[in-house]
Structure formats: C-alpha cells, structure tokens
Simulated scan of single mutants.
Amino acid sequence: MTAQLACMTDDLGPEEAMLVELDGADGAPVAVAVARDADGNFHAVSDICSHGAVSLSDGEVEGCLVECWLHGSQFDLRTGMPVQLPAVRPVPVYPVTVDGERVLVDIDVTVPVS
C-alpha cells in the first residue's frame, strides 16, 4: 500500500490533533492520530495510547508532544517515545507527506525509534 489521504492542511491548526481511520493492508481500519505541532509540522502516530488503550487524538498537543487524556502520559510526536509516565512503551509513528493541501500518511511503514 502507499500513502493515503489523512486530512487537508487546513483541517488542523497548530497544536491540534484529529483521529483518522486509514485502510490497513488487510482492509481493516487503522486508527491514526494526525497532529500539527507548534511549528506547524504534521505528524502521525497510532491513536491508541500504549499504556491505557485510549485515543491520543483526544489529548492535548503541546509543542511536539501529545498527552494522553486518561493518565497524563506524553509522547514525542517525532519518535513515538514516551516522555512522561506512566507509559513506558512507544507508540508507532508513521511517515507523513504534505502534498499541496493534502496530508498523506503511510501506515504500512513505521518510523524507526531513534
């Protein structure tokens, strides 16, 4: 599969996130949190918190972090790494391409954790 249309650039302002469901390789929907950081860059991570199985897109975005609304875990949108407990496992990060006004996400590839 290739990158899929997740949203349009004007769907998100700085420090906002939204849930999108993209088509997985098996045809099942994959929940992705698409976020725009404070600098206006777009990021895509799994929408499911690695600690508490809740939607990260419902959390606050500050700078380049998204916070899980349930227990306060924070994840770096660039790496998926948790930077605030109680989460200790990263969330998958997906490559994002901005093509004009279109924000494309490739869920078949995950960005390696650095």
Rank of each mutant, 00 (worst) to 15 (best):
V105D: 00
S46R: 02
F75D: 03
I48L: 15
V61A: 01
G27V: 00
D76A: 03
V34A: 04
G72I: 02
V109Y: 10
A31W: 00
V93E: 01
V32L: 06
M18A: 11
L65F: 12
D47G: 13
A25K: 05
V66K: 02
G63C: 10
R89I: 14
P92W: 12
D108W: 15
V20G: 09
M18V: 00
V83T: 06
V98F: 08
V109T: 10
A25E: 08
G59R: 12
D10H: 10
P92R: 03
D106G: 10
A38R: 01
G27N: 01
H71I: 07
G80E: 06
L5T: 02
T79A: 11
E16G: 13
G100V: 03
M81V: 09
P14I: 15
G80K: 04
D39T: 09
L104R: 07
L104W: 10
S114C: 15
T79W: 15
D58H: 11
Q74Y: 06
G80C: 07
S46L: 01
E15C: 04
V103Y: 03
S114A: 14
E67Y: 09
D10N: 13
V113N: 13
D106T: 07
V32E: 02
E21R: 11
T9K: 12
T110K: 04
C49N: 03
D39M: 15
G27Q: 06
S50C: 06
P86M: 12
L12T: 03
P92N: 12
R102L: 11
Q4P: 08
A28Q: 04
S46C: 04
V91S: 06
G24W: 00
V96K: 08
L85R: 14
E62F: 14
V54I: 15
V88M: 07
D11W: 12
Q84K: 11
L70N: 10
V45W: 06
D26C: 10
E62A: 12
T110R: 02
P14Y: 11
A28D: 15
V113P: 12
D106P: 13
G63L: 13
I48Y: 08
A35Y: 13
S114P: 15
D76R: 06
F42T: 12
L85F: 11
L77F: 14
T97K: 06
L77D: 05
V66R: 01
G13D: 04
I107P: 06
V83P: 15
E101L: 14
A53K: 01
E67C: 09
E67N: 08
S50M: 05
L70Q: 11
V20F: 04
N41M: 10
T110P: 00
T79L: 15
G40V: 14
R89V: 15
S50Y: 08
C68A: 07
L5N: 03
S46P: 07
